[in-house]
Nucleic acid binder design. Structure first.
Length: 283
DNA sequence: CCTTAATCCTGGAAGC
DNA sequence: TGCTTCCAGGATTAAG
């Protein structure tokens, strides 16, 4: 559920809480949830937090020693700073103490009921980039038409499947894939290679590929501004829910009228995901 | 090259 | 009210 906008919002909300602070301790409460961790040191214990970096849906915590932790929230993950009095729950998998060495002033808590998320420890941020983030395509916020053209050319799969593929664009999930395709006026099932084709019969202005690129950036950017969208269980670094002011145009609105033309929105399965689109506006 | 299905997991919603 | 069932989904893997 948390996609790029939620992660970027989380990154920004955690920055003032973590940057420059010392991590006093680190503990993995559920064995196997954190990979590459054999000591608290691997969890950055003893380090000062020097940077929070994001690529797609993944957020990295970089320590003063050079070590880096990559976090992925999966579907239900939450990364939140809590008071030390906060008791760990059944789904609290990793806890860090923040502040002075033996008496942490607060906790950084990673909860994840469905456990699709995880933590990966690396000796350096460069190792994280090389061994993990290299599999990701360009980040959705800065996606360029040339990136998309290269990835879509010659591919016969549905454009929605391509957008969900993190090696094509990093950060898009089911919600923003549908929203971007609506904004670009493109049908989710349309073969990817036709997006880059020169002949374009759409009523909408511009080349389809340029429109899609712009739609991806627009939809992601708007959602960040809205404070992490409307997701049910998204909370920022202080545990506050999303601002809820972003209204999705198609996601979750099957059967309701299209916000642009009034035609009832249609839904079905595309790329193994529930997909909603306007049969009149999207070609 | 592509799609489909299965897998991991639990909370919430819907159905009876 | 209380039970069962289904669905949601990111990423990976295997099978067709």
């Amino acid at each position: 559920m948390p996609e790029l906008p939620e992660l970027e919002h989380l990154r920004r909300s955690l920055e003032p809480l973590l940057l420059g602070r010392r991590i006093a301790s680190g503990e993995v409460r559920r064995p196997g949830y954190a990979r590459g961790v054999s000591s608290a040191r691997d969890l950055l214990a003893g380090d000062e937090v020097v940077a929070l970096r994001r690529k797609g849906k993944q957020l990295a915590i970089v320590g003063g020693s050079g070590r880096a932790l990559c976090t992925h929230l999966g579907m239900s993950g939450q990364l939140v700073v809590r008071p030390v009095s906060h008791a760990p729950g059944a789904h609290t998998h990793v806890v860090w103490g923040l502040g002075a060495d033996h008496r942490p002033a607060s906790l950084l808590v990673f909860d994840d009921p469905r456990r699709f998320g995880g933590v990966w420890a690396f000796p350096t941020f460069e190792a994280l980039e090389r061994d993990r983030w290299s599999r990701l395509g360009p980040d959705g916020l800065g996606i360029e038409p040339s990136d998309l053209r290269r990835a879509l050319a010659g591919s016969r799969r549905a454009i929605k499947a391509a957008l969900l593929d993190q090696s094509v664009v990093a950060g898009i999930g089911n919600i923003y894939a549908d929203e971007a395709l609506f904004r670009a006026g493109l049908r989710p099932r349309r073969p990817a290679h036709t997006i880059a084709a020169t002949r374009e019969r759409s009523r909408l202005p511009g080349d389809a590929l340029d429109r899609l690129c712009e739609a991806v950036r627009l939809v992601l950017g708007e959602a960040i501004e809205a404070g992490g969208s409307t997701l049910r269980n998204y909370v920022d670094g202080e545990g506050r829910p999303g601002a809820q002011q972003l209204r999705h145009r198609v996601y979750g609105r099957a059967g309701r009228p299209c916000s642009r033309c009034g035609t009832p929105l249609r839904s079905g399965q595309v790329a193994q995901r529930t997909t909603t689109w306007c049969p009149a506006c999207q070609l």
